[in-house]
Amino acid sequence: MRKRHGPSFKKAVTELGECPLCRGRAVIQGVFHELPCDHCNASGFVVAATGEALALDELVTQLSMRLRAALRQIEQLKNPQASGPEVTYQGSNQRGAGRANYTGD
C-alpha cells in the first residue's frame, strides 16, 4: 500500500440506508405533533453499514451526489439510444461520395 498525504482526489460515495427510528420519514410522532428525528438529523438517511447518522456537511454532500446520479439516469431514460437495425435509420445517411445521401440504388 502506498503512502498518501492529504485528502483523496474524489469524494467517496457512502451507501445510505433508511433511518430505523423514523423509517425514512425524517420526523417522528410526538404526543400532539410530529417532531424532527434526532437520530438521523431529520434527513431520513443513515450510513447503511453502521446505522449512524452522518454529519450535516457530509449528509449534504452525499445527498447531492445521489441527486446528480438520479438526474443523469432520468436524462438517459428520456433520450434512449437506438440499437440494432434502427441505428441505420436514426443516424446520419451521408455515406455517399462527397457526403451525399446514400440511397442504396
Rank of each mutant, 00 (worst) to 15 (best):
M1G: 08
M1D: 07
R2W: 05
R2Q: 08
R2E: 06
R4I: 14
G6T: 07
G6Q: 06
G6I: 04
P7Y: 03
P7E: 03
F9K: 11
K10F: 02
K10A: 05
K11Y: 04
A12M: 03
V13G: 02
V13E: 06
V13A: 05
V13S: 06
T14H: 00
E15N: 05
G17Q: 02
G17M: 01
G17Y: 00
E18V: 05
C19A: 07
C19W: 00
C19M: 04
C19D: 01
C22I: 05
R23D: 14
V27C: 07
G30W: 02
V31N: 14
V31M: 13
F32P: 00
H33Q: 15
H33G: 10
E34F: 10
E34G: 08
L35F: 04
P36D: 09
P36C: 06
D38Y: 10
D38R: 12
N41Q: 11
N41V: 01
N41E: 07
S43I: 01
S43C: 10
S43E: 04
G44C: 12
V47F: 00
A48Y: 11
A48S: 12
A48M: 14
A49R: 14
A49Y: 09
A49H: 11
A49K: 15
T50L: 09
T50E: 06
G51D: 06
A53Y: 00
A53D: 06
A55D: 13
A55E: 11
A55W: 00
L56A: 13
D57Y: 05
D57I: 04
E58V: 03
E58N: 05
V60W: 04
Q62Y: 05
Q62N: 08
Q62F: 06
L63E: 01
S64H: 06
R66D: 00
R66Q: 03
R66H: 03
L67D: 03
L67V: 09
R68K: 10
R72T: 08
R72L: 08
Q76E: 12
Q76F: 03
Q76V: 03
L77C: 08
K78M: 11
N79C: 08
S83L: 15
S83F: 15
G84T: 08
G84R: 07
G84W: 13
G84L: 12
G84Y: 12
P85S: 14
E86L: 09
E86Q: 12
V87G: 09
V87C: 13
V87Q: 12
V87M: 09
T88F: 08
T88R: 10
T88C: 11
T88G: 09
T88K: 10
Y89R: 13
Q90F: 14
Q90V: 15
S92Q: 04
N93P: 03
N93G: 13
N93D: 09
N93K: 12
Q94N: 08
Q94S: 05
R95A: 08
R95D: 04
R95N: 09
R95E: 03
A97Y: 07
A97T: 03
R99V: 10
R99W: 12
R99K: 15
A100F: 14
A100K: 14
A100D: 13
N101L: 15
Y102C: 09
Y102K: 12
T103I: 14
G104C: 12
G104E: 07
D105F: 06
D105G: 07
